[in-house]
Design a protein around this nucleic acid. Structure first.
Lengths: 192, 192
DNA sequence: CCTACCGATCGGTAGG
DNA sequence: CCTACCGATCGGTAGG
C-alpha cells in the first residue's frame, strides 16, 4: 500500500485486526489501542470505519489491476503471460497478507456505491485474466475451456494462499507461483 | 445438517446471516428477528452465540469427513476416488451454501478448546485427501508432487465454489464437479 | 491527539 | 417463549 505516516499505520493495524477478527469484530477502539492512541483520535485521519475498509480494499484492487495490466501490455505468448500473472498475483498477496485477506473476504461489508465500484474492479481483473486464456487458445496451446469457469478456478487456487502461507515457511512466493503455474498448466495426471 | 425443529431453524437462519454479515456482524437479535421471536428466547435452545457457530462448523466438518471416509473405504483406483471425492465435496457445499461458507470462513471466531478440535477435523480431511494422491502415485497415474501443497491447491479450487455458485445458474453441482475433476487432472495445456 | 460524552446496541440473565 | 433488565461496548461528535 502506498500510504505513509499515520494513515499508513492505521491501515496496517486495521488490516491486521480485520484479518484476525473480521470487519465487524474489529472496533475503532481496537485499532486505536494497537497504535496507543484514543479511538476519537482516529477520526483526524479517517472519516469512518468503513472508510478504512474502503481504502484497504481499493488500494489492493488497484494494485492487482495495475500489475495484470503491465503483464498484458508487454508482448509475450500466453503461457509466459500466465506465468507472469500468477507470479504477480502471488507476490502481491504474500507481500500484503493482511490487506490481501481483507480484500478477498471483508469487501462484503462495503456499502454502495463503494460496493458496486469494488465489484467492477474485480470484474475487470477477471476479464484481463480471461484474456490470457483466449490468447492461449488462439495460439493453439491451451485447451478450449469455459473461460469464466476456468478463471474462477485458477484464481481460487491462487487466493487460497492467504489462508496457509507463512513468511517463515519453506517456500518463497516465486517458488509457490512456479508450482501453481505448473499445476494449472499440466494437472495431476500423467496420461491425458 | 441433521437438526430438526426449532434448533434447525436457528442454525439455518444463523448460517444465512453469518454468511452475509460475518459472525461478529450477526447479533442474537438479528437471528431472533429472522424467526420472529425475542433474542432471550434463543437461549432456551442454545447456550450462547458461539454455541451456534460451533454446531454449524462441526456438523459440516463431520459431514465432509464422513463423505470422504465412504469414498476411501470402497475399493476404486485413485482417479475414480478423486472424482468421487470432488463430487461429494461439491455436493456438500452446494447443498449447504450458507453453512459451508460459515464452515470455511467463520471458524476463526471459535475459542479453544473448540478451535483446536475444529482444526483437527480439517487436518483429518486433508490427510484423507492426500491419501488419494499417494495412491495415484503408487499406481503410476499421478505425477509425483508435494502432497500437502497439491491438496491445498485442489481444495482451494473446490472451496471457492461457495463464492460464485448460484443454484439458479447454468451448472448443476455434478457438472461443476466433473469440470473441476478434469481441470485438476489435465490442466490447461495441450502439450505437456 | 485528548477528555468527555451521546444514543444505540451488544450478549446474556432473572423470573415467570 | 416473553418482559424487563444488566453492565459493557459500539461508532461517532463536540470542543479544545
Amino acid at each position: 500500500m502506498e500510504f505513509t505516516g499515520r494513515k499508513a499505520d492505521i491501515f496496517r493495524e486495521a488490516a491486521r485486526l480485520m484479518r484476525a477478527n473480521g470487519y465487524a469484530g474489529t472496533s475503532m477502539r481496537d485499532i486505536a489501542s494497537a497504535l496507543s492512541i484514543e479511538a476519537a483520535s482516529l477520526y483526524n485521519h479517517v472519516a469512518s470505519k468503513e472508510d478504512i475498509l474502503k481504502e484497504i480494499c481499493f488500494s489492493m484492487g488497484d494494485a492487482f489491476n495495475r500489475a495484470l495490466q503491465e503483464v498484458n501490455d508487454i508482448y509475450f505468448n500466453a503461457e509466459e503471460r500466465l506465468g507472469m500473472a500468477v507470479r504477480a498475483h502471488i507476490r502481491l498477496l504474500t507481500e500484503n497478507l493482511d490487506a490481501g485477506h481483507v480484500f478477498l473476504h471483508e469487501w462484503r461489508h462495503l456499502g454502495d456505491p463503494a460496493l458496486s465500484q469494488f465489484k467492477k474492479l474485480r470484474d475487470d481483473y477477471e476479464a484481463a485474466f480471461r484474456n490470457i486464456l483466449r490468447s492461449g487458445e488462439d495460439e493453439g496451446v491451451f485447451h478450449e475451456v469455459d473461460h469464466k469457469f476456468a478463471v474462477l478456478t485458477i484464481l481460487s487456487s491462487l487466493n487460497w494462499v492467504v489462508e496457509w502461507y507463512r513468511p517463515d515457511g519453506g517456500m518463497s512466493p516465486d517458488e509457490i507461483a512456479e508450482r501453481l503455474s505448473r499445476f494449472i498448466l499440466t494437472g495431476l495426471s500423467k496420461q491425458h
